[in-house]
Design a protein around this nucleic acid. Sequence first.
DNA 1: ACCTGAACACCGTTCAAGT
DNA 2: ACCTGAACACCGTTCAAGT
Lengths: 219, 219
Amino acid sequence: MPADSAPRRHTRDGVALAALAILDEWGLADLTMRRLATSLDVQPSALYWHFPNKQSLLADLADLIVARVRPVAVTDAAWPEPVRAEAAALRDALLAYRDGAELVASTLALGLGGEASVTRLADAIAGGGFDAATSRRAAVALLHFVLGQVGYEQQRLQFDSLGVVPAGSALDDTPPHEAFAFGVDLFVTGLGAPHLGTHNARPAPTGRGTDAAGRRPRA
Amino acid sequence: MPADSAPRRHTRDGVALAALAILDEWGLADLTMRRLATSLDVQPSALYWHFPNKQSLLADLADLIVARVRPVAVTDAAWPEPVRAEAAALRDALLAYRDGAELVASTLALGLGGEASVTRLADAIAGGGFDAATSRRAAVALLHFVLGQVGYEQQRLQFDSLGVVPAGSALDDTPPHEAFAFGVDLFVTGLGAPHLGTHNARPAPTGRGTDAAGRRPRA
DNA sequence: ACCTGAACACCGTTCAAGT
DNA sequence: ACCTGAACACCGTTCAAGT
């Protein structure tokens, strides 16, 4: 190995990894450019050579977190099992980093990162025979629930560890993992029901490629 | 009227209202204690006589916003119509103030404000014949979706108005109001379906007060 | 009861300049 | 290519002191 390699100090990826470490140890509120600079033994201004601003750094972190979603085994398990599995895998990935849900939610809204999460959910949903548009719409709705639930969960975790949660202040005493499964179930059950997308049950239109739920006939 | 009333300068409520005005005009990120102080012609430190910290001020704002949820007319409309109506009323109340959803979501997690929103949803759901625990669990799940969807919607609104939304960066091109209705439908349809709360459809247990969905028999 | 003045310990970002 | 040094325009919060 070359003992006198180039005096290259930091890379964009290295900075992102250091940021991820701070996120996990201190949380999003304490992930500051100045603290990150200190952890890299560098002046704050140095970071702006690697990233144009803090927001784009956070977008990279969101992508990293979502990219780590565990691959869901392709089994022959009947729909909607794969949807539940994808949702659970996404939850786990968000829980793997402190404030993961809040971070992903904020960058998703800016259209900067975390996009992969929707795609995965949509693909799993499409396995139920829904058309692309319906699958995506449902995936976005499910994603909002997932981010909301896990974000709430993570906020509570942090205040718990600070010992400052007012007693009885929880929205519900159902254990987080069960509350999550319950919500996902509501979604997939709703998707599976016949008269979706209409406010009143109506017979599905005939002679078209999809019924009122955007469901394609099984091949 | 007494011309020489006491030299009382500001009240807690007055400060909260001024904060609400700043929230609406500038958004949550620009609602700073210093800016609020300036708008009241007061030093920043003066605010700390009315509120122990910024967080408790924000909690008051969340309560104000949620308290303004339009009363949903008690009609004889069949369930789940009242649930849809409550969800829509909550969305409107959140949309009435810039960043309303984000504000309510953050204070809800701390157990500091916005609690009324869950109760209203739970009551509407209970109208479908579910027991209190099930109704609340479902309300919390629905609330997470509502806050997520509206929060996303409001973030997009702001970046739109700044003209800085990357083209094609939307999660979905469904109009917000329709995406919202779609998500709520998924929920209430799921709730209405028979085999809720179990991962596999099973015959409802017999001889008990509720079925597997926590549903009580109609009186 | 309500506020001022001054301070403390922070932020994100820019930009000329160095190596 | 990568970073320093210095500055700009901010934050939330505390606390003694004023009226």
